[in-house]
Amino acid sequence: RRALPRHIVSAGSALVFATTLAVISTVVLVLWVNWLSAALSLGANAFYVLVYTIILKRRTTQNIVWGGLAGCFPALIGWTAVTNELAWTPVVLFMVVFFWTPPHTWALALRYREDYANVDVPMLPVVKPASEVGRQIVLYSWVMVATTLLLWPVADTGWFYPLCAVVLGGVFLVEAHKMWGRAKNTETLSLIKPMRLFHTSNLYLSLLFVAVALDPLLTR
């Protein structure tokens, strides 16, 4: 029911609108922030359109794994907007979002796998059984939580962030394992309940980055 598939907006108009946004946003970053942030932002846009949408999306189940890199760039852009340089801290945050993206997106794709199948997008839940999707989600979830803990020594945080990372990571892992357990026994979405993990993933990442922001205020 989106505007573009329903022909409420033409493909040409969408292209003009999207290109205009990309140009204006780049100019804003160049004039009022810095060239590095502008370059990263433009690179993220180009990667999402050219690599993910055009090349990967309809060709491989790894589409959102590598295509999801575009969604990781805000961690770098936000850092460089303030410091005008890159460092290991935003790179770790970049990797947290990278490993978070597959569990987050595959849970949603499991709920809407028929929609993806109808338009020939080979999302993992379209070509693999729910049990395999659950297994992959659990694997990425463990790597994600391990990566969040890596920020502790890299950024030399206080006690607040690692405490939150452990608690939030534990909750996420429990939900991921529970969904995998349900998926081992059925293909029925109402019993697998993938949206529970999807909503958990949104809350998880939000609270984790709040913890990143609050840590220096509470422990320094």
Rank of each mutant, 00 (worst) to 15 (best):
residue 195 M to Y: 08
residue 74 P to C: 04
residue 89 T to M: 14
residue 75 A to L: 08
residue 51 V to D: 09
residue 108 L to M: 07
residue 112 Y to S: 09
residue 188 T to I: 12
residue 168 L to I: 05
residue 201 S to V: 09
residue 3 A to C: 07
residue 40 L to R: 08
residue 114 E to K: 13
residue 101 T to C: 05
residue 49 V to H: 03
residue 95 M to W: 13
residue 179 M to T: 05
residue 43 G to F: 09
residue 184 K to A: 10
residue 102 P to N: 02
residue 24 I to H: 01
residue 205 L to S: 11
residue 155 A to P: 11
residue 132 E to I: 03
residue 170 G to K: 05
residue 114 E to G: 12
residue 184 K to G: 04
residue 26 T to H: 03
residue 101 T to G: 07
residue 147 T to Q: 01
residue 171 V to Q: 12
residue 21 L to V: 15
residue 114 E to W: 05
residue 169 G to M: 10
residue 136 Q to W: 07
residue 92 V to D: 06
residue 153 P to G: 08
residue 210 V to K: 00
residue 70 A to I: 07
residue 200 T to M: 14
residue 30 V to E: 04
residue 68 G to H: 06
residue 90 P to M: 12
residue 61 T to E: 14
residue 133 V to Y: 07
residue 11 A to C: 01
residue 56 L to M: 09
residue 20 T to W: 06
residue 83 T to G: 00
residue 196 R to H: 11
residue 156 D to V: 12
residue 35 W to H: 06
residue 146 A to Y: 08
residue 11 A to T: 13
residue 215 D to E: 12
residue 49 V to Q: 02
residue 132 E to H: 11
residue 156 D to T: 13
residue 102 P to L: 00
residue 159 W to D: 08
residue 36 L to Q: 12
residue 61 T to Q: 13
residue 40 L to Y: 06
residue 152 W to Q: 07
residue 166 V to H: 01
residue 70 A to C: 13
residue 136 Q to S: 06
residue 104 H to P: 07
residue 220 R to H: 11
residue 4 L to W: 03
residue 192 I to S: 10
residue 30 V to G: 00
residue 27 V to E: 00
residue 58 R to W: 01
residue 121 V to D: 02
residue 125 P to W: 05
residue 52 Y to L: 03
residue 220 R to C: 05
residue 186 T to M: 05
residue 106 W to K: 02
residue 56 L to C: 02
residue 194 P to W: 09
residue 187 E to C: 00
residue 35 W to I: 05
residue 199 H to N: 15
